[in-house]
Amino acid sequence: MFGRRASDMAAGTHYRSERVSAVNGQYFFSTREGTLEGPYFTRVDAEREIALYIRRMKLSNAILAFRGR
């Protein structure tokens, strides 16, 4: 997939993959930033946390952009 985020300097190729993985009955999700978040007790918990993580990242980027004015 070809795509570009607003923070990317140049277009790049991003491959979609499964973000949630299970290890020893615990669930984790990986981020574009290269971190592994978790553990969570269920897949549903991990997926809910993905949405919250994205919301936090967008908010922090907006705060940084506002302060940079």
Rank of each mutant, 00 (worst) to 15 (best):
V23W: 08
I54T: 08
L52I: 13
L64D: 10
G25A: 05
E47F: 01
S17T: 15
R55N: 13
L64G: 10
A6K: 14
T35E: 14
G68D: 11
I54P: 00
Y40N: 01
K58W: 03
D45I: 03
R67Q: 12
M1D: 05
A65S: 15
A10E: 12
E33W: 03
R19I: 11
R69S: 09
T35D: 14
N61Q: 14
Y53W: 15
M9W: 01
I54W: 06
R16G: 06
P39M: 03
A22Y: 00
D8V: 01
G3R: 06
R5L: 10
A62S: 08
G3A: 07
K58P: 00
D45M: 07
A6D: 13
L52V: 14
A65K: 14
P39R: 01
A46S: 09
E37S: 07
N61G: 04
S21P: 00
G25S: 05
Y15G: 05
F41G: 11
G38I: 01
F29M: 03
S30R: 13
R48D: 09
D45R: 02
F28N: 00
F28I: 04
N24Q: 12
Q26S: 13
R4T: 04
R19N: 05
E18N: 10
L64C: 07
F2I: 11
L64E: 11
K58D: 11
E33V: 04
T35W: 09
R32T: 11
F41A: 15
I63W: 07
L64R: 11
M57P: 00
D8I: 01
R19S: 10
Y40L: 04
G25C: 04
E37C: 13
F29H: 01
R69A: 08
E47H: 02
R69I: 08
S21N: 08
R55W: 09
V23T: 14
F66H: 11
T31F: 03
A62H: 02
F41K: 15
N24C: 07
A6M: 08
R56P: 00
R69G: 05
V44L: 13
G68S: 13
R43L: 09
T31G: 04
R67K: 14
R32P: 06
R56Q: 13
L64Y: 05
I54S: 05
M57Q: 15
N24Y: 09
E37K: 09
P39G: 02
T13K: 12
E49C: 12
V20M: 04
M9T: 03
R43M: 10
R43C: 12
S7A: 12
F29I: 02
S21T: 13
I50S: 01
R69Q: 09
A11I: 09
E37W: 03
R19C: 06
P39L: 03
G34N: 05
H14I: 10
V23C: 09
R5F: 12
D8F: 02
L36C: 13
A10R: 11
